[in-house]
Structures are given as structure tokens and as C-alpha cells.
Design a protein around this nucleic acid. Structure first.
Lengths: 228, 228
DNA sequence: CGTCTCCTTGAAAGCGTTCAATTACAGTGG
DNA sequence: CCACTGTAATTGAACGCTTTCAAGGAGACG
């Protein structure tokens, strides 16, 4: 018995844009497709993937409810795929360039969200070892709004590996190490309980909270510029 | 004898915003400074850096003429430093949120540029080995407008290493390997001549040109959605 | 000519990958 | 209900790339 995902056309829906669902594993768009639309996740999880000549895969991001993806042009440089069953809303990329007053979502906001997602991915790669990166990844998921102590990992080990530039073996081994160190516990492969967030942070090696230290006056006073 | 960088206030300048110069090595803003401004590079090269608990450094991007950086808020999560002597233009982050008709640069454009830079960095990390990443890095620099066969590497090996998540030793060794393989030649440590762009691309392992393959109709026809 | 910074190179150690085998689990059909 | 099948996860062992430790060299500057 398969539940059906109807194709709606923004009928009686608070979220602007056309809405439809995809089943787990479906491709939403392919690498190279013309980027006529961008997408917002209503429910479920999406991954964006880039495929290399040698066949290996880079997952450039995971996108949860309220995240946006596919904001680029003129062509999608990555594919987008459904990690779980998902419901998405799409909007034309250029709809807001026209200055349409009826548009309810400012393109600014969309771009800012996409930029924030990109920065998050870059941040992950700043961590040197497998344990560093994986800890940072788990913290990132745990800090998502709506996540309790029980964290879901709906993506496979292989997905995580391709996101962190590791092999699935290293991911699996490192998770096992975390369990042995009592940093986390597993209730099945997909369900993680975080036992020590501080411990994970220590492994990740980033403080995350040392903002607001400077006085922001560098432009006026900083550097070697002593003139005038 | 030190050349002086005066502090201008957008006087007789085609580029809107306040302009000033920084000397090589200067800090433009610190990690944690309130992000009241974003910046555009007029000339020279800037790097953005994040510092970790263990003291190691991640260079999240290099920014050349016409690139923008520091587009974020409410605080800068990275520091910005001058790789070479630079001249910058800065603008208030919120100047364009007010809907000022006189603003000549749309915030859209700025965000889109920042997003493009971020994607470029993410792309680099998709490459698995040191040779892969370094080749992709060199190609990226060589493809910048204005770059001829003689490519300048004004940043140090250490900068490159912290950008690619490698050590400076591995960077140096890999460059030496490229020279031995006749992929590149060095006219001094900072000046690279690319002898075989195709060879470099092969090492990098990405085609870069396989866009436009799909038909973009996934939304309508794709996946397992067979309903209605 | 000494000092400093940056780059290069060698050798050994460590971590992640690769190759390989085993286990667990969901779905399917007998 | 149970065997069969395919996918996902875990774990072991050996290999290889990157790091680490260490030394030496090249160029700028005073």
C-alpha cells in the first residue's frame, strides 16, 4: 500500500509556491538541470550531491524543514535527492527579480538562508580529523530546533561519509568509538542519544561561543595604517 | 619609506561606500566583531580566517578584486586579514534593508556573490586527496579573469594548507610533485606557470563542464510519484 | 653578515582507506 | 511462518597517504 503524493498547485496553502511530495530516494533535480526554481523543505530531509569524474560523490548539504536549496543559476551544479519522504515548495528563481509586490518572500531572505547553510558546511571542513568532523556534525544536528536528546540520523553512514569527506567505514568506526567513550548511545543505527554534549564539543574542538569579543573598530584604528 | 593609506570617505569615487587601504598582514576585522559592514575588494587579496580551540586556523576563503566578504550578521564569525596590500570599500549591512532607492548595489547581488564564493570553497573540499584539492585550487585561481598562464600565488604555503585542510609540508611536497610531473613550473615560490591545464583537470578529477544535461522536468515527471 | 621568514625535503609515525568478512534487518515469496 | 534476498552497518587487518618531527636552504632586511 503506497501513500500517494498529489501534485498541488499552491491551493489553500499558507506557504507560497507550488507544493509537492517526493518519496525517499527520489531525485528532485539532476546535476546540470536548468535552475528555474529554488526549493523550501516543508517536511523531511533533502541532500544535495555533486558527482565527480571518478564516480565518487560529494554531499554538499543536508536540508531540513524550513531550509532552502537550489538557489543558484543558471544551472544546478548539484543534484538534489530526498533522504526521507519529503514535501517541498518551489518558487521560480526570477519571480522576485521582477519587483512583484505580491511576492511574500524576499529574495534577500532566501539567499541569506542559503548562505548560512553553505557556511555551516564550510565550517565542518575546518575540523581536521574524522572524530573532529563527526563530532561537529552530530552537534550541528543536535542543535537544530526541535531536536531533543534523541537525535535522528535518517541518512546512511555512506551519506554522512560523503558529506564529511570520509569513508563509511571510518564513520562507522568513529561512531563506535564515541559509544565506547560514553559520549553517545545508539538505539539502533539511526537513533542517537547524546550523553555528553560537552564531551562532543571538546572532541570537535570549537568553542562556538566566543563571539562578541572585539570592539569592531578595526576599520578606524586597526592595522599598520598610521596616517592622517 | 612607507607609503601611506589615507582614510577616504567616499569622495570622488565611482564605487559607493567608504574606501580605505590595509597593509599586507593587517587585520580588517576580528572574529567576533559586530558585523555592521560588508566589504568589497577593490585591489589586492583578503583571507577570512576562523580560529579553533586548539589554535589551528581555517581559511574559509580568499577574496580578489570585486569579491565581497563579511556578509553576515549579527557578528563576524571569521576574522578578515590582508594577504597583500589591499584597498577595500565597505558598506553598512543594513543600508539596503531600508529600501533606499539611491542605493546602487542591490543586496541580492552582494548575497549572491558571497554565496558563490562559499560554494567555491565547498567544492574544493569535495576532492579527496591532497593532489586532487591542490589541483582544483590552482585551476580555480587560473580561471579567474585577468589570470594569464603565469599565475600568482601571493598567499603562503601555510595559507594554502589552512584553506585546503592540509599541512604546509604536504602542500609543498605536492607542488613539487606537480613540477616533477611537468604539470606546472615555478618561477619562484609565488609564481606558477601552468604547463598542462588538462593534466591538472585530470588530477583534480572534475569535468566542470557537464552542465546542461538534464531536461529540468523532474518536478513534473520524476521520482515514484505516479498519482493523478 | 646575521636574523628572520618562508619554502623544501627526509624519515618515521599515525590515521584513514582499502580489501575482506560477518552480522543485522526489512521486504518478498514460498 | 520461514527461507531467501538485498541493503546497511560493523569490525578486522594491511596498506598508503598525510602528518609529525627534524634538518637544511633560499631570499629579504637591517
Amino acid at each position: 500500500m503506497i501513500t500517494r503524493f498529489p501534485r498541488w498547485s499552491n491551493e489553500s496553502c499558507v506557504i507560497p509556491g507550488e507544493v509537492r511530495g517526493f518519496r525517499k530516494g527520489d531525485t528532485i533535480y539532476h546535476q546540470g538541470d536548468p535552475a528555474r526554481y529554488w526549493y523550501e523543505v516543508i517536511s523531511g530531509i533533502v541532500r544535495t550531491c555533486r558527482f565527480f569524474d571518478d564516480g565518487h560523490r560529494q554531499l554538499t548539504g543536508f536540508f531540513y524543514s524550513e531550509d532552502v536549496f537550489g538557489v543558484e543559476g543558471p544551472a544546478h551544479r548539484e543534484a538534489a535527492e530526498a533522504v526521507t519522504d519529503v514535501i517541498l515548495s518551489r518558487q521560480a528563481q526570477d519571480a522576485l527579480d521582477l519587483g512583484d509586490k505580491g511576492a511574500e518572500i524576499a529574495r534577500d531572505k532566501v539567499l541569506a538562508k542559503a548562505l548560512e547553510s553553505a557556511r555551516q558546511s564550510i565550517f565542518l571542513f575546518g575540523h581536521r580529523t574524522a572524530a573532529n568532523r563527526l563530532a561537529a556534525f552530530l552537534i550541528g544536528i543536535a542543535e537544530r530546533p526541535g531536536a531533543s536528546a534523541g537525535v535522528q540520523l535518517p541518512m546512511t553512514r555512506s551519506d554522512i561519509a560523503d558529506h564529511l569527506n570520509l569513508t563509511l567505514h571510518t564513520v562507522s568506526r568513529t561512531i563506535s568509538e564515541f559509544v565506547r567513550s560514553d559520549l553517545i548511545a545508539l538505539d539502533g543505527p539511526q537513533k542517537v542519544r547524546i550523553l555528553s554534549l560537552d564531551g562532543l564539543r571538546a572532541v570537535a574542538g570549537d568553542a562556538e561561543s566566543d563571539y562578541g569579543l572585539g570592539d569592531g573598530t578595526t576599520w578606524e584604528t586597526g592595522g599598520l595604517c598610521k596616517s592622517a
